[in-house]
C-alpha cells in the first residue's frame, strides 16, 4: 500500500478506536464525567495547544474527535498526510485521557504514563542549555534485549532523554538498563497510544518555554521542529497505526528512523537496518551534535548518571 494510504488508514483506525472508547465511557459515566491528566495546567496538552480548547468532561471529548475527523482528508498531498498524523496524535490523547478519567490506576511501575508539569519544568533548563542534547523516543520491539539495551545506553551515555514505548520496555529491563527521570530513561507504556505522553512533553515545552498561544497550530509546529530536538526510533513490524503516529512526529519536525523497509523520505523517514548505526543515523537526522566528548571508560559516563546513587551491591 502506498505510504499516504497507510497513514490515512492508521488515522482512521485511531479515530474509530477513540470513538468506540468514548461512547462506552460516556455510557458508563455520563457526559459530565470529569476528564483531566494529573498535575498539569494544560488540560489535554496536545488538544489544548492545537485548538486552544480545554477539555473538562467526556462530553467535551466528542468535540475533540470532530476536530480529529476534520484533519483526515485522503487527498494524496503531504499536507494532508501530516495533518492525518496529527489527527492520530490527538485521537491517542483522547484515548489516554479516557483511561485517566475512567481507570483507577491507568499506569503502574515501571510505566510512567502521563508526565507532570513539574518534571517538564525540571527538564526545561537542561534542554535549553543543551545539557540534554536531544530527546529519543524508542518504540516497538528490538530483535533482542541486548540490541535494545545497546541503543538505549548509547543515548543515555550521550546525555539524551529517552522515552520507551512498547515491548522495548521489557527488553530494557531484561538487559538491566536502569530507568528513571534522573537517569533520563523514561518508560511510558505498552500501548502505542502512550507515545502521546512524550508528544505532550514536547508540546508543553513549547507552551511553557516558547510562550506560544494555545490554538496557534502552525506556530507550535514551527517551535517543535526548530527547538525541540526530538526524534523517533521505531523498531519491529510497523502497524498502520504506528506509521500514522510517525507522520504525527514528522509533522512536529521529528524524524523517524526505523529498522523496517519503508518508503523513505529524506531527512524525515529513514531505514537503518544496522543497529550499530541507529544512534549515529538518528543524531545526524535530527542534527544533534553531542557537546560532551565521550570518555573512553568501561562504564557509560554522562550527565544521565548524575542522579544515580551507587548502591553497595554494585
Amino acid at each position: 500500500m502506498n505510504l499516504y494510504n497507510i497513514i490515512f488508514t492508521g488515522s482512521e483506525q485511531a479515530l474509530a478506536a477513540a470513538k468506540g472508547m468514548l461512547a462506552e465511557a460516556i455510557e458508563k459515566n455520563g457526559r459530565d464525567h470529569k476528564v483531566a491528566f494529573p498535575d498539569t495546567a494544560y488540560s489535554l496538552p496536545c488538544i489544548y495547544a492545537a485548538t486552544g480548547q480545554k477539555m473538562n468532561t467526556l462530553g467535551d471529548l466528542e468535540g475533540a474527535l470532530t476536530v480529529v475527523e476534520s484533519l483526515i482528508n485522503r487527498t494524496h498531498l503531504l499536507e494532508h498526510a501530516l495533518n492525518s498524523g496529527l489527527a492520530t496524535a490527538l485521537a491517542a490523547e483522547v484515548i489516554e485521557a479516557i483511561k485517566y478519567a475512567t481507570m483507577e490506576e491507568p499506569y503502574q511501575a515501571p510505566c510512567a504514563g502521563h508526565v507532570s508539569d513539574p518534571i517538564i519544568r525540571s527538564l526545561g533548563v537542561p534542554l535549553v542549555t543543551g545539557d540534554i542534547p536531544g530527546v529519543a523516543v524508542v518504540l516497538g520491539e528490538c530483535p533482542d534485549a541486548e540490541t535494545a539495551a545497546k541503543v538505549i545506553k548509547d543515548y543515555q551515555s550521550k546525555g539524551l532523554l529517552t522515552f520507551l514505548v512498547g515491548k522495548v520496555i521489557d527488553q530494557a529491563i531484561e538487559a538491566g538498563v536502569k530507568m528513571s527521570v534522573e537517569l533520563r530513561v523514561i518508560p511510558l507504556g505498552y500501548d502505542v497510544t502512550s507515545v502521546i505522553h512524550v508528544v505532550s512533553v514536547a508540546i508543553r515545552a513549547a507552551l511553557i518555554f516558547g510562550g506560544l498561544t494555545p490554538g496557534d497550530l502552525s506556530g507550535l509546529l514551527e517551535y517543535t521542529s526548530k527547538r525541540v530536538p526530538a526524534f523517533v526510533n521505531a523498531f519491529g513490524p510497523l502497524s498502520e497505526l504506528v506509521v500514522s503516529a510517525g507522520a504525527g512526529a514528522i509533522a512536529l519536525g521529528f524524524p523517524v528512523i526505523t529498522d523496517q523497509t519503508v518508503l523513505e523520505v529524506p531527512m524525515n523517514l529513514l531505514t537503518q537496518k544496522d543497529y550499530d548505526k541507529v544512534v549515529a543515523t538518528s543524531l545526524e537526522a535530527r542534527n544533534i551534535k553531542i557537546k560532551i566528548t565521550e570518555i573512553p571508560i568501561p562504564v557509560a559516563f554522562a550527565a544521565a548518571f548524575e542522579g544515580e546513587r551507587i548502591r553497595k551491591a554494585d
Binding site: 502506498n2 505510504l3 494524496h76 503531504l78 498526510a81 518508503l263 523513505e264 523520505v265 529524506p266 523517514l269
Partner: peptide
Amino acid sequence: KPLADCLKSGVLR
C-alpha cells in the same frame, strides 16, 4: 536516491 525516495513516498507527486 533522495529524488527517487521523494517520488516513491509521494512527498513529491
